[in-house]
Design a protein around this nucleic acid. Structure first.
Length: 574
DNA sequence: GGGGGAATATTAT
DNA sequence: TTCCAATAATATTCCCCC
């Protein structure tokens, strides 16, 4: 059914009818998908779209033959582990859609007057909070890495070129985009699309240097600008505009001109009253262009009305497909089906969509945001031998320690990430009672987590530390941590019952009472951490005999209970 | 039933 | 020949334990 025909029908129906109409369409589509699943190869559009990658429908690709490109990608991928994995992913999304439609069946006949009133109240209150006082600009450098490379090698400008390697591209120039070559695409696929493609390796220092120049321009117009990456930032131009004769549009032209003069690079920009709108706008006239969304309610509502859901930052490929399955394609659809969506979606997702429909979002640059996790991960030729796995883990711990040193951080939650050769992802983590940062300490805990997953054949390993604190802070050092416990304002831990003594301290690992100085205490904790590997073996033997397979939630080994004698007694006796 | 931690899933650059 | 990245944040779901 073509779109205009569909719109025509929709406009003649009541709200409930519209939803039922689109939902029944969906059910038919789902049946089609089911039939597709019975074929030897998936041919559904959703799957090919998934395979094509996350940026398949992005800027610079309007005039390319998408079907032809998707076919080349499909042929190049067929038979690989990645392909099979994507197929499973695609099926999982279909299942999720089925679940949503089941939910829909249960509520479709209910009277939703009450819901509609609630939602309208919510909309009214959001409307009252609408802030039109700010002027935000989102600036995005055009094909940044590629453009920086072209500065040193101008001959590349007229040739299709991409920055990255055979396994992954970071970006491509506009010449290459004509062939469907784009960021987040593996290089070997890109070469199939465009055999004459020139691959340029990454030069991070160059991009950093270029970024510094660009940022020095941002700084002049908003000293509190919020960088999102090397090539992207939000500027709040409100203050600058107050003491300037320029219109917002003119000012941003000036900023882009200055960026170009300083760096020889071009940028695109969006200007609006908040971050979300500015970001959407910066996509409209790229490359080397800008778009201004007048800062008044009706302009904003008009602008959002026909916007495809996928244009909203935060709505990715999966959400787009799931919502499309219930007939939501544009922001206007969100409003039309607001009552049903309020019952179908989680409150957070629902509120996010309503705010999107209204064109409302924050215009804050929360400057005091602190990092919540830090990690390193590496892809490599498959390994499965436990010795090799541990060696890899050890290397990663060293890298992470260096990063922690550089950032002066410590943390309490250690996690490992494994990507099997099948592309299945496993993440395991453990919170310990004391803050750690040394490679050795992280390794001891992570090794225990890794052991539980054996045997595995993996193509990627990662390690992450979270629940972070700055190293110099009051909580650094385990003794200070226990003083904090005694003040009773630390997160609940197994050691909470230790609050009686002030002179004595209880080891967070083995629970034994110690009367020691800081150094002795640290040594003790180190020893205890050493034992965690033994503990993990015991845990494993106690719980189950299934090996290797991912442990679903219901099969997860039981945690050692607080008062359980076995393990602790074991240590005390030995 | 609810709080909290861990696992899973999605998104973004 | 090679055959799909690295890092971080947030939301949601699952499960254990009070």
């Amino acid at each position: 059914m073509n779109e205009s025909h569909s719109d025509e029908i929709l406009s003649q129906l009541t709200e409930e009818d519209v939803f039922q109409e689109s939902a029944s369409q969906i059910i038919e589509e789902e049946e089609d998908v089911f039939l597709d699943d019975c074929e030897l190869e998936p041919t559904g559009g959703s799957f090919r779209n998934l395979l094509a990658g996350p940026s398949a429908n992005k800027a610079g690709l309007q005039h390319v033959d998408k079907d032809k490109i998707n076919n080349i990608i499909y042929e190049a991928s067929k038979g690989t582990s990645f392909f099979e994995h994507q197929k499973r992913h695609d099926e999982a999304i279909s299942k999720r859609i089925d679940g949503l439609l089941e939910k829909y069946k249960l509520i479709k006949d209910k009277d939703l007057t009450h819901e509609r009133i609630m939602v309208d109240t919510m909309i009214q209150s959001l409307e009252e909070s609408r802030d039109l006082s700010q002027c935000i600009c989102h600036i995005d450098m055009d094909a940044f890495y590629a453009s920086v490379e072209e500065l040193e090698r101008p001959e590349l400008k007229t040739k299709p070129m991409a920055v990255g390697d055979l396994s992954m591209l970071c970006t491509s120039n506009y010449e290459a985009r004509k062939y469907g070559v784009r960021s987040a695409m593996p290089g070997f696929i890109a070469l199939k699309l465009c055999p004459s493609l020139e691959l340029v390796p990454l030069h991070p220092q160059k991009y950093k240097a270029a970024s510094d120049i660009v940022r020095s321009v941002f700084m002049k117009y908003d000293p509190h600008f919020m960088p999102m990456s090397l090539d992207e930032a939000y500027l709040n131009l409100t203050e600058y505009l107050k003491q300037s004769e320029l219109t917002p549009y003119q000012l941003v032209e000036q900023i882009r001109r200055e960026i170009h003069e300083a760096s020889q690079l071009t940028a695109s920009a969006g200007i609006a009253c908040n971050n979300m709108l500015a970001k959407i706008c910066s996509d409209i006239n790229k490359p080397n262009g800008q778009y201004y969304l007048p800062i008044n309610r009706s302009s904003i509502m008009d602008f959002m009305k026909d916007l495809k859901l996928r244009s909203i930052p935060g709505v990715g490929r999966v959400t787009e497909r799931v919502l499309e399955a219930v007939g939501i394609r544009t922001c206007a659809d969100i409003y039309t089906h607001r009552a049903l969506l309020s019952k179908l979606l989680t409150p957070i997702t629902f509120q996010f969509l309503i705010k999107s429909y209204l064109g409302i979002s924050s215009s804050d640059f929360n400057s005091d945001s602190i990092r919540k996790s830090i990690s390193v991960e590496r892809t490599f030729p498959a390994i499965s031998h436990p010795v090799a796995l541990n060696k890899k883990l050890e290397e990663l711990c060293q890298l992470l320690e260096a990063d922690l040193e550089k950032n002066q951080l410590v943390g309490r939650n250690i996690g490992i990430k494994l990507k099997l050769v099948s592309f299945e992802m496993r993440v395991r983590s453990k919170t310990v009672s004391s803050y750690i940062w040394k490679a050795d300490d992280m390794y001891r805990i992570a090794e225990g987590l890794l052991k539980n997953e054996l045997p595995v054949n993996i193509r990627l390993m990662g390690i992450r530390l979270s629940t972070l604190k700055p190293r110099g802070s009051e909580d650094e050092g385990v003794l200070k941590y226990f003083k904090k416990v005694n003040r009773n304002d630390s997160p609940p831990q197994e050691s909470d019952h230790v609050q009686q003594e002030t002179m004595e301290v209880t080891c967070p690992i083995c629970q034994s009472q110690l009367q020691v100085d800081n150094d002795a205490f640290n040594r003790h904790v180190d020893e205890c951490l050493n034992r965690t590997e033994v503990k993990s073996i015991l845990d494993k033997n106690n719980s189950q005999s299934t090996t290797g397979r991912k442990k679903p939630y219901h099969k997860r080994p039981k945690r050692t209970k607080k008062g359980e004698p076995s393990l602790l007694d074991y240590y005390k006796k030995t």
